[in-house]
Write a protein that binds this DNA or RNA. Structure first.
Lengths: 198, 198
DNA sequence: GAAGAATCTTGCCAAATGGCAACTAATGAT
DNA sequence: ATCATTAGTTGCCATTTGGCAAGATTCTTC
């Protein structure tokens, strides 16, 4: 018998792919998650508060962003379906977040709290490994981005994002994509013009 | 009685500060580490091989660097005394590293292998927490760097590095510091000239 | 301590990106 | 449908950074 919600089924799928474990274990884990929904523009996390939900996004898109000294939004990452969303430093160290996480579109996901996650980490070595894997992947991706920010032109980074995450372009305004790429919206606009003429 | 080597004492200190735990636990952990030494220019890790040592540096300086598509070295981080040094993605996922780790000066440290670390993680929840804390801090620092790379000028980043890690400047050539800051050595030289005239 | 190799600096000019403001296009609320 | 708001584009010019090559300086190594 299998009474999992569609969201939980997706999570089971995701977990077992990220770190192989018995189906039963994965279902037990997924069973502890509850459904969450966000309207467009809603915040999953606001600067200054402590990230307390570990969310697996099943539908919709979100972005994380920080506010720079001049008061501008800088997009630090985009999140889409089948991705884990939370603010690592705030969540694990129980400190106020310096970032915001906001829905770009209506979103559905499933979540657990910090307390439940810890309980599961303690009880299930497989889930710990899964958790670490998520952390390591995130770290590794950020490193790659950092490297490409240093070694590549904005145009190359734009083209790469377009290729690896074309869906982002359908859900996020160019202005937020520009800050993600480390440039202004003006520059992005010019880059796009330049490319279209090729 | 206390038979710890000076390196192990430093590690115990570091561990208990990063994540509070009984002295005995910390000593047991430190007891599993063995001393390692590197001459200037020696590699702790070479691109293409799997990071298998989790090193706590007690003396000396190292840097991690990647090779960009044009064959240039890009410094991804500097490591000094009282810091943990390893390549996260390679170490935890057992995959070939895309980075090198090299001694900038003669170095002394203590290390454990992947196998031993896992054994300790499995046996000691406190050590797991310590390990996670290291990971989370690394992630968080990288995020800050990424943000400052996007929002601040090279000059501001230079001044900040000078303030937060003045010791680096005594042990790393400016060329490697330049790539760390995301600029060329030529630009760094000009920035320094500009500043000295203030 | 002299030759050779790295490292660092500087001059010249080119390329990439930003700032601001005006304009146009798209979107959303009523 | 209309108005107001937000998003995107473009022109003009300034600033930041890069590329290259020549000099100057410092570090190695014999």
């Amino acid at each position: 018998m299998n009474s999992l919600t569609p969201e939980r089924e997706k999570l089971v799928d995701f977990i077992t792919k990220a770190y192989p474990m018995p189906m039963k274990t994965a279902s037990d884990i997924a069973g502890r998650f509850y459904t969450v929904r966000f309207g467009k523009g809603d915040f999953l996390l606001k600067e200054g508060s402590v990230s307390n939900e570990y969310v697996f996004l099943t539908e919709g898109y979100m972005r994380s962003f920080a506010t720079d000294p001049d008061g501008n939004d800088i997009t630090t990452s985009f999140h889409g379906p089948q991705q884990v969303v939370f603010e690592i430093a705030s969540f694990f160290h129980r400190i106020p977040s310096r970032e915001n996480i906001q829905a770009l579109t209506p979103c559905t996901g499933i979540a657990i709290t910090y307390a439940t996650l810890n309980e599961l980490f303690h009880a299930l070595p497989e889930f710990r490994e899964f958790g670490r894997s998520i952390l390591v992947n995130g770290f590794s991706n950020l490193k790659s981005r950092m490297l490409s920010t240093i070694t590549e032109t904005a145009e190359a980074r734009y083209l790469q994002l377009l290729q690896t995450s074309p869906d982002i372009f359908q859900h996020a305004p160019l202005r937020t994509i520009a800050t993600y790429l480390g440039i202004t919206d003006t520059s992005l606009s010019r880059i796009r013009k330049e490319i279209s003429g090729k």
